[in-house]
Design a protein around this nucleic acid. Structure first.
Length: 826
RNA sequence: GCCCGGGUGGCGGAACGGCAGACGCAGCGAGCUUAAACCUCGCAGCCGAAAGGCGUACGGGUUCGAAUCCCGUCCCGGGCACCA
């Protein structure tokens, strides 16, 4: 498509976006208008966009999120807020490491080269960032504080190490957090995830589960994201219940949401990979169990998760006793029970649970219904509500009770007997944060044979990465750091004896869980951030970014903020008050990818249409949250509009400073109405409609010049100056050029938001619609202050109404002066 | 399977329960031009010559009045998915 341009150069009528871009960039860089003042002269607003991962140059997705983010930031600048709008890079991570292996160099080389490329592109894209706040998470000055925070978490027991079966990506050769496993595949590379038993570092996110739920009502976030987080946290109310095991002192504890069905518990199931299973297996079942466990470990997550998969399991040889029936019930191991949810053991109630039913059917275990299914129910397990049946013993009688009542009676009984209690369980797991890769912040822990885990003292931070490159970094299943012996071997900070550094690095999501705090004071050396700055600027007023981070970054950042609050480091408990999720930029109905070959190169688009036209296209495409199919867009149309707007500036004939008061009232009304509408629309983030309104203003101004009061009318200057200011949010180069043409000094970015004269929002006449039975029959031009009675009379006298009524009387007349009359004929 | 979104012209999308289709793209016509491009102006949901009728996925309902609210159905997109 770019060939056309080369063949027949389009006459831009003097509008030359390349020249504008070259002309204004240095001027703006000198003026540096977007630095946060922090002097108390204006209300503060922290505008944040998700920082970039430096994997290459900017792409179409960046172009969209930046365009939307910049509209808001520039809008607030124009309104006079003291805006903090920082930019930085999430510069640790695997791609740099993989590139370094391939090119036999240090990951930093690739990383910082890409950062420079992106920084240059961002400047060209005319983003209103405060560059003095710039940071990179891979700088030692940054990760020093990531490590400092880790040790604070460690001291409070919020960071700990444990062995368990963890998600392992065989391709990236590292463990993954739960949140990074999507449909059984590695979120990053798409490889099938397997399980490995490893000792890993965790953050205790579960300790904050309830507060993460509760504080959601402070957040003005898309409901969709809140819902996803709610589901992810997965609160469920129920009870623990204890089952005595034959020949064992310790009972088995299970978690159930249906304590009312206890009478129907005909067997127990434990997770095969839980320690409990190994404890319970009897010698004669040992062989069968070992074989089963081996098979379970060999299954990939994908297989395990497939719903239509047959239930598998093995009898452990032991028996427990149902506490209400006294029945002897067998204990099985099966992989439909998860080791790390609840207690890793369940009471199976096949009558009321479809998974248990399936299992019972397959292995010929008894099924007892304890809830009366509704009339005509022909299914298997009945999971609905209904009266309890088969549920009584000498002490407890549930028969006839509805589920809710039966639940609470059972729990009361269990608590009474010391056999269990009411509880709440969460689906959320602790956050696995250690990674066996190089390009990340080293975990600041020293393992000492005498003292155990010893956090690196604050004055020895940062623990800098050793200089490894090329094949030193290739994945070996253990961290590459382990091979750097002179780095690993250190003196224990406590006893001075020989000790070793922890060789894992932190998940890059740790870096991004607090970067918005470091932005406040990136040079600060007395702590991770300046507490005064945090008090003045937090929480982030508006966060803009993609919804792919719904349960990853956004949940982790919330967790960090709460933990920091509890440590007394932060006043606020939530990081981001408002959230805007932009859609994706796709092409021809599919997301852009190399394999599909449907990628659109941002650089090409910018070369062909210019920065302003691309930004305008992104903003005008539709509601910010919707995906943009680039194939449906017309950056050429956006460019045409910008030229049309720009030409207005050259047409204005009145001198700068002309008082608009004597100008053409009709055009002035359009101008002021446009500003009023745009203000409301921007406040509700309906940017595409704002653009439509500006287009209408441009059209009205053109008409005023050509066939109205003419180019010398003061209202024309007012309209064009307003256009320039409104356009400065989305097309800064064009707007600046117009502003200069109009006789002003740069920069239009801080010209100030136009003031609306309320008197000009009142129209002379209003179009009143006259309907008969809801169908429009006539339109009347009436005074805006017409009374209901007058209007009704006028409407009934209308020729069209008389014709349509055709002699029928009126049954009812609804009058909504001055806009509408609806006549209901008899 | 469960839970969310969403279905409006050829296309992207507008529309406090009150003129459906603003604004734009593509299209058509006119002016300017030797011609074209650019630019400016105009037309444009569908059927119909017109009057008029029909139209916001489909079927019902509430209402003086429904794209908008309620119920049911279908389709598309997304999230979760053995969480006891």
């Amino acid at each position: 498509m770019s060939e056309q341009v080369e063949d027949t150069p389009i006459d831009r009528g003097g509008y030359d976006f390349n020249a504008m871009q070259a002309k204004w960039r240095p001027v703006w860089e000198k003026l540096d208008p977007f630095k946060a003042k922090d002097d108390g002269s204006a209300e503060r607003r922290y505008a944040l966009t998700m920082f970039s991962y430096p994997s290459g140059d900017l792409h179409m997705g960046h172009a969209e999120v930046f365009a939307l983010h910049d509209v808001l930031s520039r809008y607030w600048f124009q309104q006079g807020y003291d805006v903090l709008n920082p930019i930085g890079w999430d510069s640790f991570g695997l791609p740099a490491e993989n590139a370094a292996i391939k090119r036999n160099e240090h990951p930093a080389t690739y990383t910082y080269a890409n950062i420079e490329t992106q920084a240059e592109s961002i400047r060209r894209y005319a983003m209103s960032f405060d560059w003095s706040k710039r940071l990179h998470t891979s700088d030692p000055e940054y990760y020093r504080w990531t490590q400092w925070l880790f040790t604070r978490f460690y001291e409070r027991g919020l960071a700990y190490r444990k062995a368990s079966f963890v998600n392992w990506c065989p391709n990236d050769q590292t463990v993954l957090a739960n949140e990074q496993v999507v449909q059984g595949r590695c979120e990053r590379c798409g490889f099938e995830v397997t399980k490995r038993e490893l000792t890993q570092w965790y953050f205790k996110t579960t300790e904050y589960a309830q507060r993460l739920l509760d504080d959601m009502d402070q957040l003005q976030w898309p409901e969709e994201i809140l819902l996803q987080q709610r589901n992810w946290i997965g609160r469920s109310e129920g009870a623990f219940a204890e089952f005595q095991v034959e020949g064992r002192d310790e009972p088995i504890r299970v978690f159930t949401t249906r304590p009312d069905t206890l009478f129907g518990a005909t067997f127990l199931v434990v997770a095969p990979d839980a320690k409990l299973a190994a404890d319970l297996v009897t010698p004669d079942q040992q062989g069968a169990f070992d074989e089963y466990l081996r098979a379970v470990k060999a299954t990939t997550e994908i297989e395990r998760l497939s719903t239509d998969r047959d239930k598998t399991g093995v009898f452990l040889g032991s028996y427990a006793v149902n506490p209400v029936t006294g029945q002897r019930i067998p204990i099985w191991a099966a992989d439909y029970v998860l080791a790390d949810y609840g207690t890793g053991a369940i009471m199976a109630v096949p009558g009321q649970d479809s998974r248990d039913w399936e299992f019972a059917e397959k292995f010929h275990l008894p099924i007892i219904r304890t809830v009366q299914p509704e009339e005509g129910f022909d299914g298997k397990a009945f999971t609905g509500d209904g009266p309890a049946i088969n549920s009584s013993n000498a002490e407890l009688n549930l028969d006839g009770l509805e589920v809710a009542e039966a639940k609470s009676r059972t729990i009361d009984w269990l608590e009474d007997k010391g056999l269990g209690e009411r509880t709440i369980n969460f689906r959320l797991r602790d956050w696995l944060l250690s990674r066996q890769r190089f390009w990340g912040a080293p975990i600041p822990i020293i393992h000492c044979p005498a003292c155990g885990e010893v956090p690196v003292p604050d004055d020895q931070l940062p623990v800098e990465l050793p200089d490894l490159r090329g094949s030193d970094l290739s994945p070996k299943g253990v961290s590459p750091l382990a091979a750097a012996r002179d780095w690993v071997e250190v003196a224990c900070p406590k006893c001075g004896g020989a000790a070793e550094r922890d060789t894992d690095t932190m998940d890059t999501f740790v870096d991004s869980s607090w970067y918005f705090l470091r932005y406040l004071s990136p040079e600060y050396t007395d702590g991770p951030f300046d507490p005064g700055m945090a008090e003045r600027w937090m929480s982030v007023y508006q966060y803009v970014g993609g919804k792919e981070h719904a349960v990853l970054h956004l949940l982790y950042a919330r967790f960090f903020t709460k933990a920091l609050h509890d440590m007394g480091l932060l006043k606020v408990t939530e990081p981001f008050t408002r959230l805007l999720n932009q859609g994706q930029v796709i092409n021809e109905g599919k997301s852009m990818s190399k394999s599909l070959g449907n990628g659109v190169n941002l650089g090409d688009q910018l070369d062909e249409f210019g920065v302003d036209a691309v930004r305008l296209t992104m903003v005008f495409a539709g509601p910010p949250a919707d995906d943009i199919d680039w194939a449906d867009m017309s950056p050429g149309g956006a460019l045409k509009f910008l030229q049309r707007a720009w030409r207005l500036a050259g047409a204005v004939e009145s001198p700068v400073g002309t008082d608009p008061a004597t100008g053409d009232v009709a055009l002035r009304r359009v101008t002021h109405r446009t500003v009023a509408d745009a203000t409301d629309l921007l406040d509700s983030m309906r940017f595409n409609v704002v653009i439509a309104k500006v287009m209408e203003l441009v059209n009205a101004t053109r008409k005023a010049i050509d066939s109205g009061p003419g180019a010398a009318d003061p209202a024309v200057r007012e309209a064009v100056e307003t256009t320039a200011i409104l356009l400065s949010l989305v097309a800064p180069y064009t707007a600046e050029e117009m502003w200069e043409e109009l006789g002003h000094e740069p920069t239009v970015a801080k010209a100030g938001w136009p003031v609306v004269d309320p008197a000009l929002l009142v129209e002379d006449t209003v179009t009143c619609v006259v309907q008969i039975a809801g169908k429009v029959k006539d339109r009347l031009e009436v005074a805006p202050d017409i009374t209901d009675a007058e209007l009704e009379q006028l409407a009934l006298a209308s020729e069209a109404v008389v014709r349509a009524l055709d002699g029928r009387g009126t049954r009812k007349v609804i009058v909504r002066a001055p806009k509408l009359v609806n006549i209901v004929p008899a």
